[in-house]
Design a protein around this nucleic acid. Sequence first.
DNA 1: GATGAATGAGCGTTCATTCAT
DNA 2: CATGAATGAACGCTCATTCAT
Lengths: 216, 216, 216, 216
Amino acid sequence: MKPNPTAPKPEPRWVRRKDARPEEITAAALNLFVERGYANTRLEDVAARAGVSKGTLYLYFANKQELFKAVVREGLASPIAEVQGMIDQYEGRAFDLLGMVLHGWWQRIGSTPISGIPKLILAEARNFPEIAEFYLAEVVRPGLEAISRIIERGVQAGEFRRVEAVHIAQLVFAPTLLVACWCNSLAPFDPDGMDPLRVIDEHLEMLRRGLAPDPG
Amino acid sequence: MKPNPTAPKPEPRWVRRKDARPEEITAAALNLFVERGYANTRLEDVAARAGVSKGTLYLYFANKQELFKAVVREGLASPIAEVQGMIDQYEGRAFDLLGMVLHGWWQRIGSTPISGIPKLILAEARNFPEIAEFYLAEVVRPGLEAISRIIERGVQAGEFRRVEAVHIAQLVFAPTLLVACWCNSLAPFDPDGMDPLRVIDEHLEMLRRGLAPDPG
Amino acid sequence: MKPNPTAPKPEPRWVRRKDARPEEITAAALNLFVERGYANTRLEDVAARAGVSKGTLYLYFANKQELFKAVVREGLASPIAEVQGMIDQYEGRAFDLLGMVLHGWWQRIGSTPISGIPKLILAEARNFPEIAEFYLAEVVRPGLEAISRIIERGVQAGEFRRVEAVHIAQLVFAPTLLVACWCNSLAPFDPDGMDPLRVIDEHLEMLRRGLAPDPG
Amino acid sequence: MKPNPTAPKPEPRWVRRKDARPEEITAAALNLFVERGYANTRLEDVAARAGVSKGTLYLYFANKQELFKAVVREGLASPIAEVQGMIDQYEGRAFDLLGMVLHGWWQRIGSTPISGIPKLILAEARNFPEIAEFYLAEVVRPGLEAISRIIERGVQAGEFRRVEAVHIAQLVFAPTLLVACWCNSLAPFDPDGMDPLRVIDEHLEMLRRGLAPDPG
DNA sequence: GATGAATGAGCGTTCATTCAT
DNA sequence: CATGAATGAACGCTCATTCAT
């Protein structure tokens, strides 16, 4: 009963992936949550896509809700930091900054799986008050505030007409929401229905004209 | 003591008319779907809210999916009809028509439970291809087309600058999506975070300026 | 595709057993809990033994714990009532009453599946504080009190020597616990190891002699 | 700097001796099994309480069942030996020996975690036939036999009335079972409900009187 | 020997769906 | 038509067990 040395080494049941695991799992979960929705996503499928077993999920996340929260938190942490850094440092014209923010958003978020998170938030906010509060506090309000500050800067510099920054900020964001939701819901059924970058550019042009100071 | 069959049967208020059943059920379902999401809505609760028994649902809808589809279709039927009627008849200035459309949308849809449907669509489109196609065919494309026609009319009349109507139409819609989603997801957690009508008005002002023809 | 009238009528998926159901389920559960212990009893097996499906359990009991509580409560409610009635009405000699109580206990409880409950209590008390309190309040203390009153009655009538009723009451119960636990745990492995009735009779004789007043 | 191999290796207090491992594990397991029951005890907790890792348990015990058996066997080994030694050597009056046995039981077993074993046996006997047989063979029957011999000795010496030793032996044990089970199940919920030593003393007094030979 | 990350069978629970009444 | 008791597939979660390190 000697082991046969020529026999193919059996695939090890697992290989320690040490600290990469949580990210692999949240990445898999993000994709599935976005594709199928929260309730329709089975943890077994998340595990499979992450290349681990069902039980392994519970080594890193207490339960499905916590996994969901982790997905949202992780998906947002880095983009928020990046965008805020970008804004704080900028010193040029307000409108150019708006353009950079929106284009940056598309590159860093809109065109990546992270863009699926807004849809998740919208769909599940009522069922996850904690997430809703978190998203409001960490994404919505900081984001609006950042845009507001840009607007105000433009107004004070005479670059923009006199507007109330808060409301304009919401309008600045609206098309990004449109694009993010579109890409993660209806786009598969109408691939040519929208050109996100084009939408953003048209939006910027509308903003440029819409915010221009009144002549005279 | 036989009732006279020729006498018009009085319709007592407490007797529910048979034909009203399906609408009562879809109305109850719409509310619950919007509040809790599709998967989190139990048919038992729908039945309870509609004042019928669980089994009765199956007399009118083959299953939960069909009920969902019916909810979406029905929720969209009347608004589509109304808006289209409104647009087709109008003969005035293009921008005023845009204002009527957006204000009408708020009154007929945005401020009613129907505004929850876009959220449902976003969340479930991938799981309900049929609904996605239906929504694209019956709402998105007709809506965009209607707006496009308004834009084009404005362009040809010299009221608007020369734009590609398709892309502008998407921008015209974006804030309504923002408002609809906000009201049905995050608004409960941040009641003062947005004033929908104000957003729409600011949006219109931006459109007015953004679409104005270049001078000279 | 006419239905074939000679075909055997398909077994109906269920027959309404109206109000007998809960008792059928608790009876099945009692037997299985006693046989296998709480944790080792699968609700599927309880359902099968009760002749229903798994889901049906949840129409009557919120969860496994509640089923367990119901089993204990139901198994104890009637016997307690019976025994207490018996004691309160009795007017004869105290020792004869002790005999009636112990023999009655054997007939009503000890020789029935209900005798398995003490074992369940002992095994699970720590995990079900609520049950422990309930058992103490509804079984242990009333039972001891009843026995105590008998003892005191005998002491005051000069039938028993001067003893502290509380401690004697515990000794009176001890052999019933022994018998109940034996029958539901080790008896299957040593069928001839104990003759419950004989134990009770010897116990009574020991009590008769042990409680007899000192001569002189 | 080689250590001198002939010098007696000093045994530092902080180094755990290899041989102590199994006992440390069974001790931890005994406590947890008694507290929570067999099924509710997680091996991870046993390992933690024993100060080892989960995997280490399997170096000493094939699986949970074997650990359980070892816990019971080991928990019973010493008491059995002690009690048997005590009985075999004694040469005085039978009743005094009974007193010594019962008081010794309380000191060596009843007041220690070992008293939790009877509860475990009761609860799990059906699931562990091997343990049941072991307990019957090693504890119940030897114990009853030992008590029986004491009784018989007393009868033959004219110290006790003519009784059938077997049945009396069971009654002698009954209160110890009561006490052992009480302490490990309901006592935490009713700390003042029972004074074990007092019960044993009252029991002995009942035995003294109940076994006294008939006068004349 | 010792560790603890990984596994996956097993069970409690939910709820869409059915159908005898 | 209407009911609601009954069903059973599906899924979240646990934890005994394994094994690469």
